[in-house]
Amino acid sequence: MLNTEPNIASPDDFYEALLAIHQDLTPEQARAVDARLILLLSNHIGDMAVLRQAMARAREGIVPAGRDATIAVRA
């Protein structure tokens, strides 16, 4: 069960630290940091049900406006 109640003792400290690791980065560099962070935290959590809940909440309300680079084929 995904915990969405307050769980971090000092939320302001956390938020500052989160921004600090992105300081002076290009969008690509920031994306690399985020991707590594997500993987590290996901492995730490480990519980697939919790991870799926978190992924679903993160994706909520976003209507796809891009597309993947694959091509539908019929043979």
Partner: peptide
């Protein structure tokens, strides 16, 4: 197949150097 897939792929390869998972 997308910029996000590439970012996560590269992140996995980077972490794989010292993170067993």
């Amino acid at each position: 197949k997308s910029e996000a897939s590439l970012a996560f792929r590269d992140a996995v390869l980077d972490l794989a150097r010292d993170c067993v998972f």
